[in-house]
Each structure stands twice: as structure tokens, then as C-alpha cells.
Design a binder for these strands. Structure first.
Length: 596
DNA sequence: CCCCCCCC
């Protein structure tokens, strides 16, 4: 037999929630649970409830994070629940409970008692906000300590971020600034102004807050990253999810009445929380999703300028290579001021929060608006990674994602860790590609193109599937694979070349991407020179490509040719030499020679 | 009231 908490409704409505018997989390019966009419088209569903202690009942709402309970019919009419975390606020002069965390004690139970509507006027309850939060582990802890300072903290009780919504307007949050943007100036048809935003976090959740114009002057310098503040009297609005990757349906806008003051008792306000994805598992995430990663930065490119195709604006970018214990390496792009000022040369461990997963080159990462990075964070995972990398990771091979097959075949990726650059002689001596399994080996090497086979450098291909097409009797180009005909083929490169380094030479074959890099023009253009009889231009283009030096990323695979086993080296990708990091690599190998 | 997050 379940007992409802005696006088729970009176206590909840009183100014002193701790007056609950023995400070317990109230056990109440849900007399009704119904989906509320949406206030806005894209607003999340909200569930209204009527809660009873057997004597009185009152209106309540369910925190949206608990929507799954009624949706999965775990919480239904007449369920008995224990509210382990809830908030009370005034909406249109009526008191409303928002259940933030509940235990379902009984899913369905007969109605207990004959409760009456609780009338706050009769009970002389002041219609003012209340907050009540108790750790789930103990039933006897007092409620949140009353704020000591004047100003915002005395305006309204401290309220969990998770419980904020447009339905209540009297609250104070106690939150840590986990990220602060630059001040941004905008100008459009509707006017101009400046703004900034911060990410705020407490034990229960995160929310983004934005300040415009005067609020920038008033609050920007104060809201330093990492510090904790009491914030009150700001607007809570539906978040535009397409622009936010924080886990909150709402966001805050500071306005003229907003009050913010620093808080020095910060022990209960968490730092940034991470939910790291191992780099190898990035292939399981969808492109454009947002995640956190932790990696050792093994190389840092120079900053460079790109022009956005859509806005024609220039942006500074800088690419890093990061690795982790999943033996995976991935490229990560920094933008703007961060790209310009990033200066980390000692292979730091960096925690990235809220980076965007892209599918360029298989998988890539990019910092976006709400992303943050933390160099050498003092968290357990970072220390573990540091130890592993220094002791063994730095000598290991890392897989890279690659555009054709990384997402489905991790074994097909290869090493491009600059530590793993092999000489061509090493490639031959270690007989890469020759093994019993028939599986390819992957290698990276720095070499110079010294010879290119001039005949059959291009082939006419099908625009649909890149397969070779042949000219039929009607001068149409026919693809046997997709059974279509075309007026003209799309020429693609198929390059056979000789690559040389200081230890020897090797035949390599590469395809269209390599040809584009090598000749700086589409295969159609090169073929046109041939077709137009401009053999000199053709020759000059090929000759001009000789002497190109790259870091080659190759696949070595054996095949049988006239009963002879031989190894073919196919170019997966070439990278231009980053001279700064290449010199570092050469210096390292000189040091190793000296030691030996 | 911004809301672009880029490029290979």
C-alpha cells in the first residue's frame, strides 16, 4: 500500500518547501496527464498534470526531458510518483509545479482519497517562485542554501537551468560560463547592432544566452569564461535549434531588466562536461552531427585564407591532425581568430567540445560557433591519453579516413603520420603488399615524380559511373555498365609514373585526383590538346609536372602477371609537403642516426 | 534584433 506524502501540496505551495515531513521528496498521485496545446508551431510537446497528495490537488507540468514517460505510457493517469527534483513557479497568477525528475512508484493505482483543488488565496500563499531540489541519494538533506548576496540572488530562488521555460518568469540561475563569443557587429535591412552570446551551465543542463547592444556594454567584460554568476530577469525563448547545438529547447536573451552578479561559491557548478567519441568511431556518426573528441595534436598546418563560395568573404583556417588510442587520425579545422592565434607545438592533448563532423576525406572535424577547445585539460581521460602517447602511441601507425571507403572499410585506410614516412627502399625491402592474406599494405613516402608515361594518360569515361566508354558506329560513346550512350565522354586520368627519392625509385599508378593535382587541369583539357593536334602543349604540360614532390599515401597490393607475383603501388592520396613539419621530421631522423 | 561557420 503506497502512502502519499502528507500535506505535500500545501508544502510545495508554501514558502518553505523544506517544511515537507522529514524533508522528503514528495510522493504524489498523478490524477491527470495530458499533452498541452503547443504555444508555437515548433515548440516541443509539453505535458500538463494534476498532482494530488490525497487531500489537495494542483496543476503541474512535466519537464520536457521527461516527455518519454507519458509517451511510452510509463507515466499515466493515476500513477504514483516521487518527485526527486522539481520547481514551483507562478504562471498567470497561478502556482505551477514543474516536475524535473521523478521516480515512478506505481504506474497505475486506484485514486487515493477525495482531493480538493488547492486554493492558494485561502491558504495565504504568496504567488512567488520557489525552487526545491534534493539529491536523490539522501532524503534528509536541506534544500539549496539560500543565496547570501544581494542583487539577483535575492530576487528569486536559485533555479535549475533544466527547469527554465517561457512558462515561468521568476527565476535566478546560478551558472558557469562555459563559452563566450566575440562581440559581433551586424548590419542588415532591419538595422544594425552588436551582440555576444555565452553558454551557461549548471548541474542540470546548459543554455545559451545572448545580449544585444546595451547588454554587450553592460555584461560582456564581466561574463568571463569559467566564472560563475547569478543571473535573473532575462527572457526565456524557444531556441532556434538549427542555430544551436546545446541540449536545451530554450535560450535566454538579456534585456534592460536583466541583473547579473558574480558568484564565488562555485563548488556545485560543474565545469564543461565532455562526451567524447573515439576518433575511430567518428565513422559511425552522421555527417554534420556534433560531438566531443579528445586527441593528441600530431601536426599543425600553417594558417591559410579561403574565400567562402556563398558569401565571397575571406576566412582564415588552420588544420590540425589529431590522433587517439583508437589508432585513428583525423583532420580538424580551426577558423578565424583561433586559426590565426593557435600556437601549440608540443603535441598537446586537446579536448574539443561541440565540433562538427564532416565527411570530407571520409571523416573530418571542424570547429563551429559553439565549439570550444581546451589545451591539456586536467581530466582523467587526457592524462591517460598523454601517458599512452608518450610511451607508445607516438611510435605507432594511425589510420586515416579516406573518402572512398573509410566509412565502411576501416582496414583500407593507411598511414600518413609523418613519423611513418618510409623511404622507397624501405617499401621494397619490407616487401609491402606481399603476404599470404592477399590484403593490401599501406605506406606513406615522400618522393618526386621523375617520369610520367605519356601514352594512355587519360581514358574516356562514363559520366555516370566513371567506367570506360567506347565509340560506337554512330559516333556515340557507349557505356556497357550502365547501358547508356553519350555525345561526348568525360576524360579521366590514369597516371603511371615513376617516383624517386634518395634511396631508389618505384612505379606508382594514380587516378583522376592525382592527375588533377599533377597537371592542374581536367583530363578533358589535356585530351583536347591531343585531339586538336597540339602535341607541343600536351608535351609541355606533362613535362611541367615532372619534379613535383609529394607525400604519397599508397596502397601496395600483389597481383599475378604471367605467373609472376608482383606488387602494384596505387596512389590513394597525395599531400603537398608541409616544409615546416617535414624539416622537423628530418631533424628527428638525424637525431636517431646520431644515437645509433 | 544574430543565425555565416566557410575551403579542399
Amino acid at each position: 500500500m503506497i502512502n502519499l506524502t502528507k500535506d505535500a501540496i500545501v508544502a510545495i505551495n508554501s514558502e518553505n518547501p523544506a517544511s515537507l515531513p522529514a524533508g522528503q521528496n514528495p510522493v504524489v498521485q498523478v490524477l491527470q496527464v495530458k499533452k498541452a496545446t503547443a504555444s508555437q508551431p515548433n515548440a516541443p510537446d509539453r505535458y500538463r498534470m494534476v498532482l494530488s497528495d490525497g487531500v489537495f490537488y494542483m496543476q503541474a507540468m512535466l519537464g520536457t526531458q521527461l516527455n518519454h514517460l507519458p509517451e511510452q505510457e510509463v507515466l499515466v493517469k493515476n500513477s504514483v510518483i516521487r518527485m526527486t527534483n522539481y520547481a514551483v513557479n507562478t504562471v498567470q497568477n497561478r502556482l505551477l509545479v514543474i516536475a524535473l525528475q521523478v521516480d515512478i512508484l506505481e504506474s497505475s493505482h486506484e485514486k487515493i482519497g477525495s482531493p480538493q483543488n488547492y486554493d492558494p488565496a485561502k491558504a495565504q500563499v504568496q504567488p512567488q517562485g520557489q525552487s526545491h531540489q534534493q539529491p536523490q541519494t539522501t532524503d534528509n538533506k536541506p534544500t539549496i542554501a539560500p543565496p547570501q548576496s544581494k542583487g539577483p540572488s535575492s530576487q528569486a530562488p536559485v533555479y535549475p537551468i533544466e527547469g527554465l521555460s517561457p512558462y515561468q518568469n521568476k527565476w535566478t540561475i546560478k551558472a558557469r560560463v562555459t563559452q563566450r563569443s566575440d562581440i559581433k557587429f551586424w548590419s542588415n535591412q532591419r538595422g544594425e547592432g552588436k551582440l555576444f552570446s555565452v553558454n551557461l551551465m549548471d548541474e542540470t543542463g546548459e543554455i545559451r544566452a545572448t545580449g544585444f547592444n546595451e547588454s554587450v556594454d553592460e555584461f560582456y567584460s564581466m561574463l568571463e569564461e569559467g566564472k560563475v554568476f547569478f543571473i535573473t530577469k532575462a527572457r526565456v525563448q524557444i531556441a532556434k535549434k538549427q542555430f544551436s547545438n546545446l541540449q536545451n529547447e530554450y535560450e535566454i536573451t538579456f534585456d534592460k531588466s536583466t541583473q547579473i552578479e558574480p558568484c564565488f561559491d562555485t563548488s556545485d557548478v560543474p565545469d564543461v562536461k565532455y562526451n567524447f567519441t573515439e576518433l575511430q568511431n567518428l565513422e559511425n556518426l552522421e555527417a554534420n552531427s556534433i560531438t566531443d573528441v579528445l586527441g593528441v595534436v600530431t601536426s599543425v598546418d600553417d594558417a591559410s585564407q579561403i574565400i567562402s563560395k556563398s558569401t565571397q568573404k575571406p576566412y582564415t583556417k588552420r588544420e590540425l591532425q589529431i590522433v587517439d588510442r583508437s589508432q585513428q587520425s583525423v583532420r580538424l579545422t580551426l577558423w578565424g581568430k583561433l586559426a590565426e592565434t593557435f600556437d601549440q607545438t608540443n603535441e598537446p592533448v586537446i579536448a574539443f567540445k561541440g565540433v562538427k563532423v564532416g565527411d570530407f576525406g571520409g571523416r573530418s572535424l571542424s570547429m563551429v560557433g559553439a565549439s570550444t577547445l581546451f589545451v591539456n585539460p586536467d581530466i582523467a581521460e587526457a592524462h591517460t591519453l598523454r601517458g599512452w602517447y608518450d610511451q607508445q602511441g607516438k611510435n605507432e601507425q594511425f589510420s586515416t579516413f579516406n573518402s572512398s571507403s573509410a566509412a565502411v572499410k576501416p582496414e583500407s585506410s593507411g598511414a600518413v603520420n609523418s613519423n611513418e614516412i618510409k623511404t622507397l627502399d624501405q617499401v621494397k625491402q619490407s616487401q609491402l603488399g606481399l603476404n599470404d592474406t592477399g590484403k593490401p599494405d599501406y605506406w606513406s613516402g615522400k618522393a618526386t615524380v621523375t617520369y610520367i608515361k605519356k601514352d594512355n594518360l587519360t581514358y574516356p569515361s562514363c559520366p555516370n559511373d566513371m567506367k570506360k566508354v567506347t565509340q560506337d558506329m554512330n559516333d556515340k560513346w557507349r557505356c556497357e555498365k550502365c547501358e547508356s550512350s553519350f555525345d561526348a565522354p568525360e576524360y579521366r586520368y590514369i597516371v603511371t609514373c615513376n617516383a624517386t627519392d634518395h634511396t631508389g625509385q618505384l612505379w606508382l599508378s594514380g587516378f583522376n585526383d592525382f592527375g588533377l593535382e599533377l597537371f592542374k587541369m581536367p583530363a578533358n583539357d589535356l585530351q583536347a590538346m591531343m585531339n586538336n593536334g597540339d602535341e607541343a602543349a600536351y608535351e609541355a604540360t606533362v613535362k611541367n609536372a615532372l619534379g613535383s614532390t609529394y607525400n604519397f599515401n599508397c596502397r601496395a597490393k600483389q597481383d599475378n602477371f604471367n605467373d609472376n607475383v608482383r606488387v602494384r603501388h596505387q596512389i590513394n592520396r597525395v599531400n603537398n609537403i608541409n616544409y615546416k613539419s617535414d624539416i622537423g621530421r628530418l631533424c628527428d631522423s638525424i637525431t636517431k642516426l646520431e644515437v645509433a
